[in-house]
Design a binder for these strands. Structure first.
Lengths: 66, 66
DNA sequence: ACATAATGCAAAATATATATTGCATATTAT
DNA sequence: ATAATATGCAATATATATTTTGCATTATGT
């Protein structure tokens, strides 16, 4: 499932995928694939993304229902 | 860093590492290593653990400080 | 103290996240 | 419309999470 909240949070911060990638220490492709819901990042990477975007795990990665 | 909150939540539910492992579909060792802070689980696994223990990502895996 | 159950630990094998490269498509500004 | 920038996509390579097996150690109950 696509991670819209993450993409929105990134755009709110006016960051490109590549900017975020550089901040969290991965490649642009990895960020793109996570936003596209095409894979399953590690906890460490999720936390790094949250910190870079000023959000928590629940705000970006937790689905209340399902 | 050891994940004390996860271990406490598991014990509150009176589950053994092996019980939790079976519910979330991994091996006992994987649960043991996550509780021991010796590796970096996938987001999917974190979410499965949270659901099995009735907690959210922030409750089990988010560190407010640091 | 003894028996049993639960957890820790370690090595090798396997599955999968992530990197790398290159190119295609879409978006944005001029 | 054109140029430039941002993102999508796919194949191969590499790093690392997870499995498997077996045994050691610790906790729990009797």
């Amino acid at each position: 499932m696509k991670n819209i909240r993450m993409k929105v949070a990134r755009i709110e911060r006016e960051m490109k995928q590549e900017d975020l990638a550089q901040v969290v220490g991965v490649t642009r492709q990895t960020i793109g694939l996570i936003e596209a819901g095409k894979y399953n990042p590690s906890l460490k990477l999720c936390i790094a993304i949250c910190k870079a975007l000023g959000k928590t795990l629940d705000e970006l990665f937790w689905e209340e229902k399902q």
